[in-house]
């Protein structure tokens, strides 16, 4: 099933071309990698998919089962884009709770369990402004998965994380894939891409070019 289709998408910012007639297909149940140097448009691609920005030309087509008539964004997507986000004066748990309250699908216990999965102490009283980058990254990871989102859009998800956490979370992603979830990620670490991804797109000449990789798992 085609979950996300990028069809002839062009996008530029103030005359600087990022995508020119780019095409790609993301099927349900796979892990995809997006490669490209800094500034090539990886985060822009993710923002386009999530509907944060609109293509100048072309379309992003989301499968109807992941759309809702009421909302202007895809449903059941967990995302990390660009950098983690947080309310500085709240603890990690309070931040996650404020996001969770919006949909009100999960309980405090679910949030706490997710925090333990990513390697954070749910009862820590530390405010997020004093979190290290790796800890903020873990909060971002936690909010992307805490509501059992079926599609994960992960921009540098392991950035600044300790090796042990990376190992745990890689395995988690593989487990998710086996459950039929769909994951699209970027990473500067080739090992991540090789270990995890079924297919890789490389941003080259403002297009998304499929790269052959050995699909593992």
């Amino acid at each position: 099933m085609k979950l996300i289709e990028v069809v002839n998408v062009s996008k530029s910012f103030k005359g600087i071309q990022i995508f020119n007639q780019a095409n790609a297909v993301f099927e349900q149940g796979n892990i995809y990698g997006i490669l490209g140097p800094n500034g090539s448009g990886k985060s822009v691609l993710f923002k386009l998919i999530c509907g944060f920005i609109k293509p100048d030309q072309g379309d992003i087509i989301i499968h109807p089962s992941y759309r809702s008539r009421r909302a202007d964004f895809p449903q059941n997507f967990g995302i990390i884009i660009d950098r983690p986000g947080y309310a500085a004066g709240l603890t990690g748990f309070e931040n996650l709770k404020r996001w969770a309250e919006i949909r009100n699908q999960i309980k405090d216990e679910d949030i706490k369990r997710t925090m333990r999965v990513v390697g954070l102490d749910p009862d820590a009283r530390q405010k997020m402004k004093s979190y290290s980058l790796g800890m903020k990254q873990k909060i971002a990871f936690a909010q992307a998965i805490m509501e059992n989102q079926q599609v994960l859009i992960l921009d540098e998800p392991f950035n600044a994380m300790d090796v042990d956490s990376v190992k745990v979370l890689r395995e988690l992603l593989i487990k998710y894939k086996q459950e039929g979830r769909t994951i699209i990620l970027t990473s500067h670490n080739e090992e991540d891409i090789e270990l995890l991804c079924d297919q890789v797109y490389q941003i080259r000449s403002h297009k998304l070019v499929p790269v052959n990789t050995m699909a593992k798992v």
Partner: peptide, 22 residues
Amino acid sequence: ISFAADIHHRFLTYTRMRRPII
């Protein structure tokens, strides 16, 4: 001022997959 900080720290960005930003 705290609204500005929430935007700057991208708290609002991560509400966007949960509720329309408007």
